[in-house]
Amino acid sequence: MNNKKSSAVTSFNKWGYIFLIPFAVVFIIFQLVPLVSTIYNSLFENYMSGLKHVGPNFVGLANFAKLFTGGDFLKYFKNTMIMWVLGFVPQILVSLLLGAWFTDPSLRLKGQRFFKTVIYLPNLIMASAFAMLFFTLFADSGPVNSILVGLGIFKTPFKFMSNVWSVRGLVALMNFLMWFGNTTILLMAGMMGIDSSLFEAAEVDGATSTQIFFTITLPLLRPILIYVMITSLIGGLQMFDVPQILTNGTGDPVRTSMTLIMYLNKHLYSKNYGMAGALSVILLIITGILSMIIFKATAQKEVK
């Protein structure tokens, strides 16, 4: 062992710690401290009653009990999930289809770059401006109604903003448009990673492209499908900008499009810190469980 060399190695290895300092300091101040204080807040009664400030008084898990028995939490959770499913199901189906087409060598689609550029475009659009755009386009006197009435599909303008399912449908449509291009590109990368000799062997054996898709592509894509689904679910739980702007924060009609984060945002604005804390903790736990599933799924991939 060369002592001099090993001490030189350790002396420059200390730079590893030095280069980690900015990340560590910023993480502790801006994420860890807020996280701990959010959890701490969830255990205290702390809200504004009119102009009077109540609390903070330690109440244990009372905020959580109130959250679940009040009924609103479950209602908003249901809304969030409904709008996520409505957007995610078409998203994953369309993305699988497009991914299969783009990577199918026998199809040789032209203009792939153009199509990929176009379908990815909505992902980069400011969600709040996109929602504002939909609000004006689907307004009672907006251009969509003008087209629909002009074509004779409706006799009178359809009130998109006053119907439960049209508001949820619009939110889902926007989420679909914003995310299917991204999902397509992710799935394509997964599909191109599959050993092409498998496809060739199947083709030699006379399998149709539908059979190949269901017996080879889909099973081998499982880890990446799980990844896409769980990350989308985590993103879905954070759904905020689109329904917030579309409904001006009300979640109308009768709060059927109110999401969990809109509820959190409301508590933050009304300085209802106890409930906001409890809601955050529950979201954190759900996200944590979902992330563990991703870790498991991707770890399996490495074992293979």
Binding site: P34, T38, F240, L268, A276, S280, T287
Partner: peptide, 10 residues
């Protein structure tokens, strides 16, 4: 995976 919204209160 920790969403920023979850720590927003703190």
């Amino acid at each position: 995976m920790i969403p920023t919204q979850v720590t927003a209160l703190g």
